[in-house]
Amino acid sequence: MGSRIPSKPRDQLSSQEKSDYDDIICSFTQIAEHGFGKNGERFLYKDKDGSWLGPYPLLMAAPKTGKLGMQLVYSIGELPLPSDVKETAILACGGHFQAAYELYAHEAVATAAGVLSKEQVAVIKQGHKPEDLNENCSLAFDVAVRLCGAPGPLPQELWDKSIRAFGRNGTLALVHYVGFYAYICIALNAADAPVPE
């Protein structure tokens, strides 16, 4: 089954859609290639006819919001957080929401970068914490799962542990990554964005 918000190649867009597409496609391409490499190197974010996959069609469907979303991605990407901690938090969000495309993409990112093993990713994808995570990744998992899955404030103990482990800026980065990827997971699930075959 395809996405509820399917992407279309540029040549199938109306004049206004082409204008919107051209206005934000540069941002999409820069972020995708900077963060994930060329299409297909780690995972597919465009299909064979050049149509965007994953969250991109949803962002294209509301161009003003899509542009702001891309600016947010740039800003969050500049925040200081170790790669293994970041990918653990992102995958913990995906595991909580069972967002298929997010799990597909970030499994590829985490394993290609060597920051998590395939076995660790498989456990996180099921919503569980691997026993062999390092201390910082274990903490990131706990923070992400608590923020995604329980009402009310983050417990003071988790906040304090995060401040000790990552500092204030790193803790803020972790919170922003969790918040942003929770949004992405919700959007992907709403659109029923499929994993490429």
Rank of each mutant, 00 (worst) to 15 (best):
P155S: 08
A144C: 12
G35L: 08
L81Q: 07
G167N: 10
V73D: 04
S162Q: 00
P130T: 09
Q12C: 07
P63K: 05
D23R: 15
R168P: 00
A193H: 05
V85F: 01
A190Q: 12
D132R: 12
Y74L: 02
Q12Y: 02
Y56P: 00
H176Q: 14
Y181A: 07
A150R: 14
P196Q: 10
E102Y: 02
A173I: 02
W159C: 06
L79P: 00
E107W: 01
G66R: 07
G37I: 04
I186H: 00
Y101K: 11
S15K: 13
A110N: 05
F43I: 12
A113N: 13
V178E: 04
A144K: 07
G66V: 11
S14D: 05
T88H: 03
K86I: 01
Q71H: 10
G170L: 08
I31N: 12
L103T: 05
G152Q: 08
P80Y: 10
W159G: 01
A92R: 12
I25E: 15
L174Y: 07
G127V: 08
Q156W: 02
E102V: 02
Y181D: 02
P55S: 08
G167W: 09
I25M: 06
N39K: 06
P6V: 09
E87K: 06
L91E: 09
A182Q: 14
K129E: 15
I184W: 00
I163W: 00
A144N: 06
P130E: 11
P82V: 02
A62S: 13
C185N: 15
A61T: 01
I163F: 09
A100P: 01
A92V: 11
L91S: 09
G66A: 06
V109M: 09
K46S: 01
G127T: 08
Y21Q: 02
D49E: 14
L172N: 12
A89D: 05
N39Q: 10
K48H: 11
R10V: 13
E41L: 01
R10Q: 02
V115T: 14
I184A: 05
P130A: 12
N134H: 10
G95Y: 11
L172C: 11
K161W: 03
L58F: 03
S19A: 14
G69L: 02
L59P: 01
E119Y: 01
L91R: 08
P82W: 02
Y181K: 07
D47N: 15
L147V: 12
A100D: 14
D160S: 13
E131F: 00
K18D: 03
